[in-house]
């Protein structure tokens, strides 16, 4: 498996650390309801098909990436920097 880091280019997956669903980016408001926080922490979709995942270029530039990937075909549709995604 190979992932394209927007900063470093295409690299072997061994350089990356896998975190999980990109929903971790949607951090609730500090005073959100406990249930909202609990859902944020525990609930994940498990789709057969497109997913948005967080990968960390640990053995590279240290960038966190959002990787859009198809869990059925293993196709990687695209990657973007977490930092850039958040800045807009």
């Amino acid at each position: 498996m190979r992932i394209t880091c927007p900063i470093c280019g295409e690299r072997d997956r061994r350089e990356f650390y896998y975190q999980g669903a990109a929903s971790m980016l949607d951090r609730p408001d500090p005073d959100a309801d406990g249930q909202v926080w609990s859902d944020y922490l525990h609930l994940r979709d498990n789709p057969a098909g497109l997913t948005r995942e967080l990968w960390y270029h640990e053995a590279g530039c240290g960038a966190w990436l959002i990787v859009e990937r198809n869990t059925v075909t293993h196709e990687i549709i695209g990657t973007e920097l977490v930092e850039a995604a958040d800045a807009d």
Partner: peptide, 18 residues
């Protein structure tokens, strides 16, 4: 040590980009 660097990178890039 490794886990903390990863975590700091995550928090800064995801939640404190500015």
């Amino acid at each position: 040590a490794g886990q903390v660097v990863r975590h700091l990178d995550w928090v800064r890039q995801a939640f404190c980009p500015n």
